Simulated assay, not measured.
Amino acid sequence: MKIIIDWLAVLRARRAGLRAKFALAAIIALAGSALAAEPYPDRPVTLIVPYAAGGSSDVLARLIGERLSKSLGQQVVIDNRAGAGSRLGIEFAAKSAADGYTLLLADMPHTIIPAIQKGVHYDPVHDFTPIGLIGTASMVFFINPEVKAQTVRDFVALAIAEPGKMTVASGGIGSATHLTAELFQAKAGIKLVHVPFRGAGPAMNDLVAGHVQSGFTTLATASSVLDRVRALAVASETRLPTWTSLPTFKESGIDLVVEHWWGVLAPAGLPGEIAARLTGDVKAILESQEFATRLEPLGVTVSHASPAQFLGLIESDTARWADIVKSVGISVP
């Protein structure tokens, strides 16, 4: 009987030892995972710009990226992925990991493309997490100085006299500049030859060179060439505070109002704590007077909208542009 009792004691001791080993292993595993989970971010962050360098999105991405690098403590790398009117870059961002290391500098065409292009592989609302709305700006109509027009009415008269000959550049099929040009033609009763480029920057470069005669863009994009182009009108309700001599389209009898916007998005499913960190950093940048001062010459008004309000804008614009595209009859192959 004594031998049996001794073996039972040994078995109990072994079982206790195993439990202790398992407990120790669990503690070590937890400690290891805690050490492995470095605070966000622990490596560079990529900010995708779905256009070529030089356009308004690129300008704003570099301004906010420089400041985000400082606040995050990691470099923000600008990745220009142009193509299909910004669709390629947007789709790339939508398919990226929702870990905070891939962000998108989105703009208004984000909500236009699903209505105007076929085979789009992203949902402008459900495939993204809103981080922050950067700002808004009205579209300005520019022409090459060689065009014999001093006003919008002069330009419309030329287009009517030579239907299908005057050219209008855009930043790509389905871009905001393209859709604004289509709306302009519909409102003015004219027909222009659309010349798409891979971004608003290249479009403005060819406008300056005289390869195309006209084009819509924002002051942010045109800021470096304002002395080499002629602005005829701004698509806003009122004149720009920073350019009071530039008339609105409405003053010329054309009801054209188009307000462009830019914002930072992340792929859907971004962890809440990372989204909050990014939103807080972007908010701090937008509240900086220094940043607002940098945007003023570009004709961009800083936004103070919340992520929820930004999401609401994306939802409303997606529905609005779908209705406009259908009513105007715009189609893209």
Results as ranks from 00 to 15, higher is better:
E66A: 14
L63K: 05
G89M: 04
V156L: 13
V140C: 13
G65H: 07
L104S: 11
L60E: 09
E146V: 05
G73Q: 10
D154E: 14
N144T: 05
E66K: 06
N144P: 03
T102D: 13
A159K: 12
K148A: 15
K70P: 03
E66S: 15
Q150C: 05
E91A: 07
V140R: 14
L60S: 11
N144Y: 01
A157G: 08
V156E: 14
G132L: 14
P145N: 02
L103R: 11
I116T: 06
T151W: 02
T151A: 12
S86H: 01
F142L: 12
S69C: 08
D99T: 04
L88T: 00
A98Y: 01
H126C: 02
A84D: 06
V140G: 12
A84Q: 07
V147N: 08
T102C: 11
P109W: 07
D107T: 13
I143P: 11
E66C: 06
D154G: 13
Q75C: 05
L105G: 08
G83L: 02
G132M: 12
V140S: 13
Q117T: 01
P124R: 14
V120K: 02
A61D: 10
G85F: 00
V120Y: 01
T136H: 10
D127W: 06
G135H: 06
L158A: 12
I64P: 08
D107S: 15
S138Y: 11
G65S: 05
Y101H: 15
T111W: 06
A94P: 07
N80E: 09
D123A: 07
V147C: 09
R153V: 11
V120H: 02
R67A: 10
L88N: 10
L103I: 10
K95A: 15
S96C: 06
K118C: 00
P109A: 07
P130H: 08
G100E: 04
I112R: 09
A82C: 00
V125W: 03
D123S: 11
T111Y: 08
F155Q: 14
G65E: 14
T151F: 04
V76H: 07
Q75R: 14
A82R: 00
A94G: 08
